[in-house]
Amino acid sequence: MPGGGPEMDDYMETLKDEEDALWENVECNRHMLSRYINPAKLTPYLRQCKVIDEQDEDEVLNAPMLPSKINRAGRLLDILHTKGQRGYVVFLESLEFYYPELYKLVTGKEPTRRFSTIVVEEGHEGLTHFLMNEVIKLQQQMKAKDLQRCELLARLRQLEDEKKQMTLTRVELLTFQERYYKMKEERDSYNDELVKVKDDNYNLAMRYAQLSEEKNMAVMRSRDLQLEIDQLKHRLNKMEEECKLERNQSLKLKNDIENRPKKEQVLELERENEMLKTKNQELQSIIQAGKRSLPDSDKAILDILEHDRKEALEDRQELVNRIYNLQEEARQAEELRDKYLEEKEDLELKCSTLGKDCEMYKHRMNTVMLQLEEVERERDQAFHSRDEAQTQYSQCLIEKDKYRKQIRELEEKNDEMRIEMVRREACIVNLESKLRRLSKDSNNLDQSLPRNLPVTIISQDFGDASPRTNGQEADDSSTSEESPEDSKYFLPYHPPQRRMNLKGIQLQRAKS
């Protein structure tokens, strides 16, 4: 015994090295194993092979420090690593049964499904019991997946119906949107047309105001020219009257000059006056001389005659003075006559000038009245044309509004008919989907599995289990394997941990 101590140590070291070499393959693929292994699927088989106990299973599945599946799978690998070579062998058998691809990844061999460990530990009855539990578990999982698949199909059909409904609603909204954009385009076109009409109206108003201003300026210029013409006519008439007055005065002077006595007659009258003065002096001298030589009687007679002569001279002087006064009065009367005649001529000139001015103003008033009548006639014609244009424009607008209203009513009726057609199509689609759903539900009910399987069917299934373990590994792997896509769409199922009653199965096998 003492001599065998070193050999035992060498043997233990060799086993430990082999164990480390075995687990080295697992550690190399630890990331892939932790990512894809579900500990809840492996722990029943590991407990059946007595590699882990209930406490280890509870620690792996329910520990609060292991929230994710990767953490739980890593903890399970750590626990199996502590179990040595047996933990490695049982772990590979569980991978061979549940995850053939991972088994091939770790060992590089094809899975054979021999279950040597569980046969050694529990015997064939334990293997049968384990396989029966796994089959029931798989059936329950398949039923749950079928239910989930039916629910998802129903949800899918519902979503398809909602999608069709949303599509129809979208078509309806597109119809309304198209109608909205069309009405918006019509409104924009009408606004552009309105702005264009306003611009045209403004341009016409500006043109009309400009023409009116030009016409008023032309009328004012015409009036100024007419006033200048009238003033020139007035000056012409005044000059004609002055010329006529000057002509009359010149004719009067000419007549006075023609009626003036001649120079010879004046000289002859002056000679006669001198001769008479000479004779008068001679007679006076004779009379003076006679007075001195005459007697007293003759002197008395001469005195009487002288007195008579003096009286006659006085009378004559009075007559001469009277004649002079009369001549002066006649001259003054002639001057007054000439003055009055001049005033008369001036008044006649003024009267004729005023008459011509009156005629001029009368003509001017007639011209202004004619212009006013023409302006009123043009204004009435413009008003009439404007009223006709406004009436025609309003009539066109009324007809346009009428046609637009008819078009809008027809478009609304068309839209309502399209919407009604879309709604009826939606109703038809809904009815078809309901009919299809009812038909599929009836087919699913016919094809669904019963909840409680008979014992004979279970025994028959387990009677055929042994050949399947040898020759149909691919079928078992397809039913027991969970793909990543299934984990996305289906909830994980945790079967209840219970042991099955095998009395009925044993009785059935005894009868057979």
Score class of each variant (00 low, 15 high):
Gln140Met: 13
Met65Thr: 12
Lys83Val: 05
Arg113Ala: 12
Leu80Tyr: 04
Glu7Thr: 13
Ile52Asp: 03
Thr14Val: 12
Gly126Gln: 15
Gly5Thr: 12
Leu127Val: 11
Gly108Val: 08
Arg75Leu: 04
Gly126Thr: 13
Met132Thr: 07
Glu134Ala: 14
Tyr36Ile: 14
His31Gln: 06
Glu122Lys: 08
His81Ile: 07
Met132Leu: 08
Leu15Thr: 10
Asp56Phe: 03
Asn25Ser: 14
Gln140Trp: 07
Ile136Met: 07
Glu19Lys: 11
Arg113Glu: 15
Leu33Arg: 01
Pro64Lys: 00
Val51Gly: 02
Glu24Tyr: 15
Thr112Tyr: 15
Gln48Met: 04
Asn29Gly: 04
Asp9Asn: 11
Ala73Thr: 10
Leu102Gln: 05
Ala40Asn: 08
His129Pro: 13
Ile37Ser: 00
Glu101Ala: 14
Asn62Leu: 06
Phe91Lys: 09
His31Ile: 06
Glu24Asn: 12
Lys16Ser: 09
Glu7Gln: 12
Thr112Leu: 14
Gln85Ile: 05
Tyr88Lys: 09
Lys145Glu: 06
Arg35His: 07
Ala63Asp: 15
Arg114Val: 15
Tyr88His: 14
Met32Gly: 02
Arg86Glu: 14
Val60Gly: 00
Glu96Phe: 02
Glu96Ala: 08
Val26Phe: 04
Thr107Pro: 03
Glu7Ala: 10
Leu127Thr: 14
Pro111Asn: 03
Met65Ile: 05
Leu15Asp: 10
Phe130Val: 15
Asp58Pro: 00
Thr117Gly: 14
Tyr98His: 11
His81Leu: 05
Cys28Tyr: 07
Glu18Asp: 13
Gly126Trp: 14
Ala40Leu: 04
Asp53Glu: 02
Glu110Met: 13
Gln48Pro: 02
Glu57Ala: 02
Glu7Cys: 12
Leu105Met: 01
Met32Gln: 08
Leu80Phe: 01
Ser116Asn: 09
Asp58Tyr: 07
Met8Leu: 13
Val120Gly: 07
Pro39Ile: 06
Arg113Leu: 06
Met32Asn: 08
Leu138Cys: 10
Glu19Met: 12
Asp17Thr: 13
Thr43Lys: 00
Ser116Met: 07
Lys69Asn: 04
Asp78Tyr: 03
Met32Glu: 08
Lys69His: 00
Ala73Pro: 00
Leu76Val: 03
Arg75Val: 02
Leu66Tyr: 15
Asp17Leu: 13
Leu42Ser: 01
Ser94Cys: 13
Asp58Lys: 03
Ser34His: 01
Arg113Asn: 12
Tyr88Gln: 07
Glu122Ile: 04
Glu19Cys: 10
Asn25Cys: 10
Asp56Ala: 04
Asp20Thr: 12
Phe130Gly: 14
Pro44Leu: 01
Asn71Thr: 09
Arg86Pro: 08
Asp78Ile: 06
Lys16Thr: 10
Leu102Met: 01
Thr128Ser: 05
Gly123Arg: 15
Tyr11Phe: 11
Ile52Cys: 03
Asn62Pro: 00
Glu125Ser: 14
Leu76Pro: 04
Pro111Thr: 14
Asp58His: 00
Pro44Met: 01
Ile136Phe: 07
Gln48Glu: 12
Asp78Met: 03
Ile136Pro: 07
Glu110Gly: 06
Glu125Gln: 15
Lys104Arg: 10
